[in-house]
Simulated scan of single mutants.
Amino acid sequence: MGCYPTNVKIMMTLDETDRRILTHLQRDASMAFDGLGQAVNLSRNACWRRIKALEAAGVISKRVAVLDPQSVGLGLMVFIMIRTNAHAPDWLEQFRNATRTIPEVLGVYRMSGDLDYLIRARVADMGDYDRLYQRLIHRVPLSDVSASFVMEEIKDTTELPL
């Protein structure tokens, strides 16, 4: 493994036990190795070794706590749809830098079709969204920006189907 550059992920074939471990960790990353091992029929040490291998291969990229947005004052989710006439590499770098440094921005996606970019953000309220919008348009020129506000979250998960 030492001969690979650090930015290259090593491809790993997942077996059924790896998939069960990952399913459990996606639901509760704080699960103790003893309990996780018991759930997937492995010893604590074998479970630990598999998790370390999954981390080394980049399958597990990080472990986080998922917060309730309402509890931290960020009850409004907004999808910001952007169309632009600028497609030069320097504009894209400016856009990337702007969106990566705005904490309310949770996800930014370059899209196919009529829409160029989609931003997913969390804000407290409409006034907070306006402040986010103002920061964004001051940092990067945009030709068309529209927003849709989530009225009800029917399903929102980080769990990948394995």
Rank of each mutant, 00 (worst) to 15 (best):
82 I>Y: 09
50 R>L: 05
77 M>R: 14
93 E>P: 01
27 R>W: 05
119 I>D: 07
76 L>M: 15
137 I>K: 09
14 L>R: 02
138 H>D: 09
119 I>L: 15
102 I>L: 15
157 T>R: 04
58 G>R: 00
8 V>E: 13
42 L>F: 01
125 D>N: 12
159 E>T: 13
136 L>R: 01
37 G>A: 06
124 A>K: 15
92 L>W: 14
94 Q>H: 10
121 A>F: 04
16 E>S: 12
161 P>A: 14
103 P>Y: 07
60 I>H: 00
28 D>V: 11
81 M>S: 13
5 P>H: 12
95 F>P: 02
152 E>V: 12
96 R>D: 06
156 D>L: 11
136 L>T: 02
11 M>R: 15
120 R>F: 03
62 K>R: 14
3 C>L: 08
111 M>G: 00
117 Y>I: 13
14 L>W: 05
127 G>L: 09
144 D>R: 12
34 D>P: 00
36 L>N: 10
104 E>D: 03
75 G>R: 08
44 R>W: 06
137 I>R: 14
2 G>Q: 11
94 Q>K: 13
61 S>M: 10
117 Y>K: 10
80 I>F: 00
76 L>F: 00
146 S>N: 10
9 K>R: 15
154 I>H: 06
12 M>T: 13
7 N>L: 11
9 K>F: 15
5 P>N: 11
64 V>D: 06
64 V>L: 12
86 A>G: 01
71 S>L: 11
133 Y>E: 11
93 E>A: 14
17 T>E: 10
134 Q>I: 02
37 G>H: 08
54 L>I: 01
12 M>L: 15
43 S>I: 01
18 D>L: 07
145 V>H: 06
89 P>E: 05
